[in-house]
Design a protein around this nucleic acid. Structure first.
Lengths: 240, 240
DNA sequence: ATTTTCTGACGAACGTGTTCGTTCCCGTTC
DNA sequence: GAACGGGAACGAACACGTTCGTCAGAAAAT
């Protein structure tokens, strides 16, 4: 596992390298991530693990963002989608799946950021979207399920990014006190509304706020139809 | 307003370096951004502009994320908040301000990403929050204004990040076809729901979708009270 | 007036992502 | 069997963010 510097043995002594494939690269990247954390997954470190040079990786992966997208998709493939077909209230089951997604993202916050930058389009992501669409179909009018799933996922991803990078910065104290100090420094003269609300602005745990946000989104989706003239798309039925 | 290029005088002609201050650094950074784009605002380029070395900047700025936060806050300070006190429907005025915020962010997408990673806490941001709180107070029950403003801004920031980085990637074609291809490749066997919806999943312009999202959020906020037991915070009134 | 202290500034260095030109190998074609 | 062509792998290099140890110069203390 820890190759260290086992003397500069020429590569020909290594018994048949796995030949370098996208799958192998992603697997190695996930291995490093689980063992040492995502921030350790650098192109150089990864290349070293695969006994090659950094430039060689670029044959299979366009850049680090793309690599992370592959890693994330792999993770999403392992997501528990059993709530999709389980019995019970569709809202509860939907929120359960969304929480799973969010939890996966929060575990490796850097991946969430990638998902926000590079829109996922891998099989793992599509699998999840399909499941969510099935759940939405149970209770949401047909015209807005497409936009709704996007909105929900977009929101969870963003929240994970925010929460996550804050965890990386580690000192939640520092962050909090930064904004907290500013709030406490607000006087009725400078920022009246902020001063009035005070620490209520930063109240609640992340879970509480996210749970509330889910309710807000679902309630809003249920009673907000899609604007007219936004659904006539050529070939929208998938039968060209 | 438009600083332009007041003759590219060599740095040695500069009469007495501005002594290097946070204000000066941020101003120079904004200058480079407006002239050459945000991606050109590197520590080295910035140091060169200020006729010093990169390391010197770290006395005033912890890292690039922090620098960008300062830049963003400066931009936010120039935001048009006149709708806050204007007459008319509070919802329309609120959305107007949110659009301003979003537009500012989309102009320099990298800044949006910073805002998502490092929570803003500068005067420009607080000014905007205070204005939004005033607008929300006109129509939203008091218990949820604090969380609502956070939710709204969080969402706009995330959307700008997503939209923006896509613009940077430039080929919206490429991006679109990536997901589009996956959608078209979906069969009723593999991903039934996705196949059924087809291109409707990617329908609508960014504006249409964001406008709809605003409606969803506001409608949801209006009818989703905050969960009980989440508002008793010590010193919540700002009077310790 | 001399000494001490401390902070802003700096030069050099490390590890990073990414690109470029070259080399090598293997399947294809004559 | 020989020559070829193309994709995979590589070595070297560039610009980047950030850190470290050092230094100068001003402020504070004596």
């Amino acid at each position: 596992m820890t190759p260290g510097k086992t003397a500069p043995i020429s590569r020909r002594e290594r018994p048949a390298k796995p030949a370098l494939s996208l799958e192998g690269i992603v697997a190695a990247a996930l291995g490093i991530m689980r063992a040492e954390g995502l921030e350790r997954v650098t192109m150089r470190r990864l290349a070293q693990e695969l006994d090659t040079g950094p430039a060689s990786l670029y044959v299979y992966v366009g850049n680090t963002a793309e690599l992370r997208a592959y890693m994330l998709d792999d993770l999403l493939g392992g997501l528990d989608l059993s709530p999709v077909t389980a019995p019970g209230d569709w809202r509860e089951r939907l929120v359960t799946v969304l929480w799973s997604y969010g939890s996966a993202l929060m575990e490796y916050p850097g991946l969430a950021q990638s998902a926000l930058v590079t829109r996922p389009a891998g099989p793992g992501y599509l699998r999840m979207v399909d499941g969510l669409l099935a759940l939405l179909a149970e209770g949401v009018p047909e015209d807005r399920t497409a936009w709704a799933v996007d909105l929900l996922l977009h929101f969870v991803t963003a929240t994970a990014t925010e929460q996550g990078t804050r965890k990386v910065a580690d000192d939640a104290r520092r962050e909090e006190s930064d904004l907290t100090a500013a709030i406490l420094a607000a006087t009725p003269r400078t920022f009246p509304r902020i001063a009035a609300l005070g620490m209520d602005l930063v109240s609640g745990t992340g879970e509480q706020r996210l749970g509330w946000a889910f309710d807000v989104l679902l309630n809003g989706i249920l009673e907000t139809p899609r604007p007219e003239g936004s659904q006539d798309v050529p070939g929208a039925d998938g039968a060209p």
